[in-house]
Structures are given as C-alpha cells and as structure tokens.
Amino acid sequence: MKTIHPIVKKWFDCWNNGVIEDLPIADDFSHTSPFGTITPKSEYMDIVLKNKNDFLGNTLTIIKQIQEDENVCVQFEQKNKNTGLEMTVCEWYNIKDGLIKSIRSFYNIGNAEIKG
C-alpha cells in the first residue's frame, strides 16, 4: 500500500491511541456521516466527548487508500472494544493548510444512535 498521507495517519493514530485532543482538524472542520453533518470543530469535539464510550476504544485498521493531492479516501475496519461494534468504513478527507478541513464518512449505522 502506498504510504498514507501524514495528516490522515495522525488522525488514525490519535483515534487508535485515544488522544483525541490532538486530532489534526481545522476550526471550521465538518464531518458528514449517515448521522448528518457536524460543524465546526468545537461541536464535533463536544459530541465525541459526550459519547466517549462509543467513540473511544476503537481499533482502526486501514485496508486501502487512494490519494489525489489533498484529497484522500481510506477504507478501514473499525472494531470497538467498549461496544463490540465492528464495521467497514469508507472516508473521504479534504486537507488544507496541514489540517483536515472535512470528512465524508460512509457506513451502515444499523440501529446506532449518537446523542448530540
């Protein structure tokens, strides 16, 4: 596999190590998923912290990636030791000025619910 973009690698490292305070995201960051769009960074971080059990405890394993300039697509497996959730995810990252500006995340949510 081609070397992963260093900013996206840092994103994965932060999640795998539970160091979410170091996520490389811009202040005007937006995250779009089957749950909707969360923006800016402060709101995203509030939701992550309120739902720590769901968001932390993950092991994210990269399967494939494609990259064109500052746009990176990564397919990965997510396994959460806290919830038992396992799924395959595809995410598109838009990187600007050394930070992730936006992510579009694709996965089947089943009956999951995130409280905002």
Results as ranks from 00 to 15, higher is better:
Gly116Met: 15
Lys96Trp: 03
His5Cys: 02
Glu113Lys: 15
Phe29Glu: 13
Met87Tyr: 01
Ser102Lys: 05
Gly98Arg: 05
Ile7Asp: 01
Gly18Met: 04
Asp46Val: 11
Val8Phe: 02
Lys50Gln: 04
Asn71Ala: 02
Ile95His: 06
Gly116Pro: 09
Leu49Phe: 15
Gly84Gln: 00
Ala26Thr: 06
Ser102Asn: 06
Ile109Gly: 13
Glu77Ser: 15
Asp22Cys: 03
Phe35Pro: 06
Cys73Ile: 15
Ser33Gln: 12
Thr88Asp: 12
Ile109Met: 14
Ile7Thr: 13
Thr32Ala: 09
Ser30Asp: 02
Thr37Ser: 05
Ser105Trp: 02
Ser30Lys: 13
Lys96Asp: 14
Tyr44Pro: 09
Lys9Ala: 03
Trp11Pro: 13
Leu56Cys: 11
Phe35Gly: 12
Phe76Cys: 07
Phe106Arg: 04
Lys41Met: 08
Pro24Lys: 00
Ile95Arg: 00
Leu49Arg: 15
Ile95Trp: 02
Asn82Tyr: 09
Met87Asn: 07
Ile38Phe: 10
Asp22Met: 10
Val89Gln: 08
Lys2Pro: 08
Lys50Asp: 13
Met45Lys: 15
Phe106Asn: 12
Gln67Asn: 00
Pro40Ile: 06
Phe35Gln: 12
Asp28Val: 07
Asn80Glu: 02
Met87His: 04
Phe35Leu: 12
His31Lys: 15
Lys101Arg: 10
Asn108Phe: 07
Ile4His: 10
Arg104Phe: 11
Ser33Glu: 06
Gln65His: 03
Gly116Phe: 13
Arg104Glu: 11
Ile4Gly: 04
Ile103Val: 15
Thr83Ala: 02
Val8Ile: 02
Lys52Phe: 09
Lys41Thr: 05
Glu68Pro: 07
Asn94Gly: 09
Asn58His: 12
Gly116Glu: 11
Ser105Asn: 12
Asn80His: 03
Ser42Trp: 08
Phe106Ser: 15
Trp15His: 01
Gly110Gln: 04
Ile66Pro: 00
Met45Trp: 05
Val89Ile: 14
Ile63Ala: 11
Lys101Asn: 08
Lys96Ile: 12
Ser33Gly: 06
Ile4Met: 09
Arg104Ser: 07
Tyr107Gly: 04
Gly36Cys: 11
Thr83Glu: 04
Leu99Asn: 10
Lys10Val: 07
Asp69Ala: 15
Phe106Glu: 14
Cys73Glu: 12
Val8Tyr: 00
Val89Glu: 10
Asn51Trp: 13
Thr88His: 07
Gln78Gly: 09
